[in-house]
Design a protein around this nucleic acid. Sequence first.
RNA 1: CGGGGUGUAGCGCAGUCCGGUUAGCGCACCUGCUUUGGGAGCAGGGGGUCGGGAGUUCGAAUCUCUCCACCCCGACCA
Length: 490
Amino acid sequence: MAKGLTKMEDNYSQWYNEIVMKADLAENSAVRGCMVIKPYGYSIWEKMQAVLDGMFKETGHENAYFPLFIPKSFFSKEASHVEGFAKECAVVTHYRLKTDENGEIVVDETAKLEEELIVRPTSETIIWNTYKNWINSYRDLPLLINQWANVVRWEMRTRLFLRTTEFLWQEGHTAHATKEEALVETKKMIGVYAKFAEEYLGIPVHIGTKTEKERFAGAEETYCIEALMQDGKALQAGTSHFLAQNFAKAFDVKFLNKDNKEEYVWATSWGVSTRLMGALIMAHSDNNGLVLPPKLAPIQVVIVPIYKSVEELDMISERVENLAKKLRAQNITVKYDNRDSQRPGFKFAEWELKGVPIRLAIGPKDYANNTWEVARRDNFEKQIIADDNILEHIKTLLVEIQENIHQKALNFRTQNTYKVDDWEEFKNKLETKPGFIEAHWDGTSETEEKIKNETKATIRLIPVNPVLEQGKCIYSGKPSNFRVLFAKSY
RNA sequence: CGGGGUGUAGCGCAGUCCGGUUAGCGCACCUGCUUUGGGAGCAGGGGGUCGGGAGUUCGAAUCUCUCCACCCCGACCA
């Protein structure tokens, strides 16, 4: 058991916070609600970015960059959009400081902005204002743009990675000639997110649409992926919105079609954020610390030497460097932990805390026998492997660990997903064994609201292709044709 | 933003109620020696705006006011 790490079953949120900090992923900063992402944590984010960026480009998107500031007036152009974000905006009102008579630095009241600038909470408005100039003809469409950026949402309560005032994300903003094409894009991108979650994060996700209440401000349809965390709460891991012609109308973005007729452009937007870091931590980690899927681990293999003398270390180091070179040639990231200041046991514990998938140890015995001790982070199994086979073994093992992590998460989700048809059981499950609940719903916002108020559970999503079956709404008893997915959520 | 809690060395804490030597302890850090197959031992050493500001007092980590930050529970949200 890791020293000083709170157990997940004793206090889940404390366990989470400790992993984030002890594994050197991030820490709180001097600014309320804003975190410092530390190098180890940031390198995981960089890996996520690289993979996602590649997937966006494969699907025809290009990167661009739009301003951090948005004129206040832009927000009022789309009614539901402003309503959704107004309560959590940072506003820039002045552009100068001065030293007052007491030598204090104060805001120079004479330097007041004519129109306040909003620090973007999301970029639909500034982007659609720009698209107006870019789009004239159907030949300019589709316009497939993504931007990597930081955004600010002034949340009341923040948590490292899960909800910070400033966060990093990507936001795709596409423009299309037809509704059908925009809908295809919306679904395509939620598919990209789901593939990324399953294959890279190793997190199984459900795909579906949000209810009207939970929909993005300004969207006509919101697709989402939802994942289950180890405390039985759901986490929205990515969203893709069909914005219809709402923003085109708000910003007057029209194009001439082949028949020389003016039409409004159809829009989508989609995003994932550093919240994925939170998902990654909460989905896989254990009481020994972080567990990273090999595909996203900054260090895939760590090598710890065991020695008694400098001569012994030199001998071992030569063999280690030899293997490290071969591993790097296969694009496997290796860390040789030859610090003399720490003993092996300390290093073992530390690299487990940091989630490194594979640990190799080599001491005099292994050196003499031409072997390596191989330990996996996901299930703690140890094996002695001959030097001749070590390269192939590691390659296979990395694949195996990636799969095993995903499988474990999938098993967990299966064991914590319940079909419930009785209201009392519904409430009881949420209190005693939270997880996903598949239940019938009458399709009304009133019922959704009442269920939320009485149980804290929300409809996470409406399945894309629901299994049709006759049933009765868990709350109202009214008829329903399929089940929706309920859970308590982050 | 409402309720509760916390803030003393890099980390974890004692001291605060009841003001009074030079503010302690453990881990970490530095030096040396011995060690090294699951979080080493001994010896020596360095490090403090007691969260910030103002006030009460001969004297404040301790009392008062105020501001800030963090944690937990709600409401809001990715």
